[in-house]
């Protein structure tokens, strides 16, 4: 039994190290709240969300848009400046609280984790190509393939 446990643990370590070595922090920039835009796929019919609804969606507590379409949430890494600024300024929560909320959903059968995206360029591609998706980027990355969700 102990050998099996040891072997499983070593495998876990290996996977973690491999995953780690492929992990690159997102491009760090100094981004203020005003420069961050919430974006959605163009098929989403909602164009405005208040902070509480935005929070419910990004905390993964609400699984559909108000019109019933499934929401697909995309986020940047926890240590990305744009993520921290988005969490603090747009959601008014700290990144560690958001992470804890996701962990509690994922490991209690009450929800799913958001999709992780490494860079803002990938974020833009993912939002443009996924129906019902929502994410956020620095305004300078914005283009016409996605729509902006404004504050209510």
């Amino acid at each position: 039994m102990r050998h099996l446990v040891t072997r499983i643990m070593l495998s876990f370590c290996l996977i973690t190290v491999l995953y780690w070595s492929g992990h690159q922090p997102a491009a760090a920039q100094d981004t203020g709240a005003e420069d961050i835009v919430v974006i959605a796929n163009r098929d989403v019919s909602i164009t405005q969300l208040d902070r509480d609804s935005l929070r419910a969606i990004f905390a993964m507590r609400q699984r559909t848009w108000p019109d019933g379409q499934a929401v697909h949430v995309f986020v940047l890494p926890n240590d990305a400046d744009v993520h921290a600024a988005f969490a603090k300024e747009r959601l008014a929560v700290f990144p560690h609280q958001l992470q804890l909320a996701w962990d509690r959903m994922v490991f209690s059968g009450t929800g799913q984790a958001p999709h992780r995206i490494r860079t803002q360029q990938e974020m833009l591609e993912a939002i443009a190509s996924t129906a019902g998706s929502i994410g956020y980027i620095a305004r300078e990355y914005l283009d016409e393939r996605v729509q902006v969700i404004t504050r209510e």
Partner: peptide
């Protein structure tokens, strides 16, 4: 208010364009 927002109009227009082109919007099949 959302009915008249620019984002929605834009989305509507893109949908119309996509229909004119005869192809659905290029969305990943979820």
């Amino acid at each position: 208010a959302s009915k008249s927002s620019p984002g929605n109009r834009l989305a509507g227009r893109s949908l119309a364009l996509a229909c004119l082109a005869g192809t659905p919007p290029a969305l990943a099949d979820s």
